[in-house]
Design a protein around this nucleic acid. Sequence first.
DNA 1: AAATTAGTCCACAAAGTTTGTGGAGTATTC
DNA 2: GAATACTCCACAAACTTTGTGGACTAATTT
Lengths: 136, 136
Amino acid sequence: MLSKKSQYAFKALGYLTEKYTEGPILISEIAKKKKIPLKFLENILLELKKADILDSKKGKGGGYFLKKSPEKVKVATIIRLVNGPISMIPCVSLYFYERCKNCNEKHCGLHEMMTEVRDATLSIVENRTLVDLVDY
Amino acid sequence: MLSKKSQYAFKALGYLTEKYTEGPILISEIAKKKKIPLKFLENILLELKKADILDSKKGKGGGYFLKKSPEKVKVATIIRLVNGPISMIPCVSLYFYERCKNCNEKHCGLHEMMTEVRDATLSIVENRTLVDLVDY
DNA sequence: AAATTAGTCCACAAAGTTTGTGGAGTATTC
DNA sequence: GAATACTCCACAAACTTTGTGGACTAATTT
């Protein structure tokens, strides 16, 4: 399961995608519309900014906005950033790989199956972008 | 990611599947061979027994063994049992469903995408069994 | 029947993660 | 320089994970 933080991040990014043409959006507006605790959302958006997904402007007329065009930001990128590995086990992860201590990966049934699961998931989340998060 | 507990459970079940014809297997043997903390493994196996996946026998010649034939036990069942939901978000889960508070499921982009991810994952784990966990 | 073997059960504890909150500071605009 | 809005850091409560310890029960062997 994705953490609440991740779910909040997706809701917020969906909202910013909707409002992409409208310039900076207040944190407080996102928090209210998407029912996200304000201060928690602050942390999340700041993290997304540091990861180059968002940018912000201070002072009057300020707020957060997408740094890149929403169709250029993959859902997979956001998951890895906010939630961590997409794979079910570390020895199968592409971005968070860790060697398995108690099995030989070449001959491990679990390894093989989890690789399939990973690829099935990636085939979706690597091909969806922030645009796919918007309500319709 | 699956918890360590889940990974231990899979390792143990894979081992019991290998040794399916050999009668009861000692917890201590599984723990040693699969490098799982003994007492932690006790808890896991007991849980699997209560869920009717395993059975056990006490005293000399005792140990744990699969209650059903390994090809009859789906991987999906084990994940749900030991790890919890397979879906990435609760409002998309079949077995652990929870309503989403801040979106209309019929018009939510996230909901739609996560349904696809769920189905892609299920198409694998609902069609694999303990047999697929065995090393080869 | 006693000893040995091996699972059962319960409680607890250390560590880590998640989910926040509070408050002072900084940049920008008017 | 006042108001606005993001920034940064620290901390805390709650929960989950990952175990451990010890007494108990059931089955077998001698």
